[in-house]
Amino acid sequence: MTTAKRKLDHIRICLEKEVEGGWRPFDDLSLVHRALPGIDADDIDTSCRFLGKDLAFPFMISGMTGGHPDTKEINVNLALAAQEVGVAMGVGSQRAALERAEVEETFSAVREAAPMIPIVGNIGAVQLRRGGAEVIDRLAEMIDADAIAVHLNFLQESVQPEGETEAEGAIEAIRSASDLRVPIIAKETGAGISGEDARALLEAGVEIIDVGGLGGTSWSGVEAYRAEERGDLKSAKMGRVFWNWGVPTPVSVVECAFSGAQVISSGGVRSGIDVAKSIALGAMMAGAALPFLAPATEGSSEVVEALRVYRRAFLTAMFLTASKDVSDLRSAPIVVLGRTREILEQRGFSAKKFAVHREMSR
Rank of each mutant, 00 (worst) to 15 (best):
L80A: 08
K53F: 11
D70P: 04
L55S: 05
T106N: 10
A296C: 06
R339D: 10
C256D: 04
D232Y: 12
R34A: 13
G231S: 07
Q346I: 05
R358H: 15
I193P: 00
S271I: 11
W245L: 13
P248N: 13
G282T: 03
V269G: 06
T249A: 00
L51I: 09
K72W: 00
D45R: 14
G90I: 08
T316N: 10
S265G: 05
G221A: 02
S323W: 09
H33C: 01
E168T: 12
G22E: 14
R308K: 14
E172H: 02
D9G: 05
K352I: 13
V211G: 02
S218F: 01
T65F: 00
A236K: 11
S271W: 06
L307S: 04
E172V: 09
F107D: 07
L15C: 08
R240V: 00
G92P: 02
L80M: 14
R362L: 15
V275W: 05
G260F: 06
S176Q: 14
Q156S: 08
D40K: 15
D144C: 01
G268S: 05
F354T: 04
I117V: 15
L202R: 02
H33S: 07
P115I: 07
E134N: 13
H68W: 02
G63Q: 06
G299I: 14
V253H: 11
V110S: 11
I11Y: 04
R175Y: 11
A149E: 00
L329H: 09
K237I: 06
M142K: 01
N244R: 08
V222C: 10
A276H: 02
E102G: 03
L152C: 04
A145E: 09
L51G: 02
E188W: 10
K187I: 06
V309E: 14
S350N: 13
R311H: 14
I208S: 03
E203R: 15
I117G: 08
T321V: 11
T65V: 07
C48A: 12
P291Q: 11
G299A: 12
H33I: 13
R230A: 03
R181N: 11
A4N: 07
E345T: 14
L51P: 00
L55R: 04
L29N: 06
D146N: 14
R312F: 13
T340S: 14
A4V: 02
T65G: 01
A224C: 09
H10Q: 12
F57T: 11
I11H: 04
E20R: 15
E73I: 09
G205F: 03
L155A: 15
V241M: 13
F59R: 02
